[in-house]
Design a protein around this nucleic acid. Structure first.
Lengths: 187, 187
DNA sequence: TTTTAAATTGACTAATCAGTCAACAAATGT
DNA sequence: ACATTTGTTGACTGATTAGTCAATTTAAAA
């Protein structure tokens, strides 16, 4: 079993449950079932672990939301797939999602919020939005505003569905949520 | 000068800059210019200080967003005032807003996320949304979903305007943002 | 097999933390 | 004036923390 991976998993769980600084490295290694010292073999410092965890999860998320996008032709269908990919990942990866939320709303401790690979996906997504604006499928607003509020909407939807999980299979609800979402974006 | 207030202000600043657990009580009292011991005279524990700070700021916010609501008759005007009150408060109270964000996205350390006075305002706001739904000014969806996503949208708008402050005085931008916001909500 | 390198352990340390407390100061009441 | 409460201090403590390191095991290479 890969102890590095065990440590990252344990860290995710404890960081979400107790918070970053309330989680001693000793608790992480204990939860992972490994010795205290090995953590510093794989990660130079605790902050390094946090950074690497953040980047790896963010990469997983940004990769996931573009999943199967090529299998759909219709522009609106693609937009909807990104939308559903996003909140589905959030619900299927509760701990990871909460960890991202926690770090994104913290100024401390994360030096690497702009890892090159993340920036790259970000730019890609940005240009995608621009294309939609050019096609007049999305309102002509600053793409940064569009992107930020798009994910703000998705984030609150995930938070809501975490609280009311039964709604996830409510087709009427999902359809209405999508309707509202696209009403927000459309030109 | 009220030392209790000095402590709360210093705590807000340091919590936002460094994070909750990375801020020792000694740093708070130092920043406030008071002795280390006095913190525990006004607050039983560090967690108590955090809780009281959270509740007081949340109360300030919930009170502010309903400001001047009685001075407007039109339903849509009221909705828009709540909208602008919200993001204006967020921009005018940067540290406090970021502190709320940080705590709302943390599972740890806050036992009092449901203070009676906050719940009360929350219920009030909930019934307001229900009224708007009944008047068919807002789409007929679960009020919790509406409320959550409304503030998700406002939060991301504040985050955006913090990054691009010049847009705050851009009338065209604000008008378009409102348009999108109401397109999202309307029946 | 032998040698070398990498992984793993857990006891250890220096630093830091939340919270205490005895002493003193300021304000308040009588 | 005196007594009593309340506010304030900062040195102190027991507990906890991130990170180290010498020793041991495991794996790989020769």
């Amino acid at each position: 079993m890969d102890k590095r991976e065990l440590l990252l998993e344990a860290a995710t769980k404890l960081f979400v449950e107790r918070g970053l600084h309330a989680t001693p490295t000793s608790a992480i290694s204990k939860e992972a079932g490994v010795s205290a010292g090995i953590l510093f073999h794989y990660f130079k410092t605790k902050d390094d672990l946090i950074d690497e965890l953040y980047v790896s999860i963010k990469k997983e998320f940004t990769a996931t939301i573009l999943n199967n996008l090529d299998k759909i032709n219709a522009d609106l269908g693609k937009l909807r797939l990104i939308w559903s990919n996003s909140w589905n990942w959030g619900l299927d990866n509760d701990l990871k999602f909460k960890f991202l939320l926690q770090l994104d709303n913290t100024s401390c401790s994360v030096r690497v919020k702009s890892h090159p690979e993340i920036i790259e996906k970000y730019e890609l997504f940005n240009s995608l939005i621009q294309q939609y604006i050019n096609k007049e499928l999305i309102k002509n607003m600053d793409t940064h505003f569009i992107m930020g509020t798009m994910f703000g909407l998705i984030t609150s939807m995930i938070t809501y569905l975490t609280q009311f999980p039964e709604k996830r299979n409510d087709q009427v609800f999902i359809e209405q949520a999508w309707e509202m979402y696209y009403n927000y974006l459309k030109a």
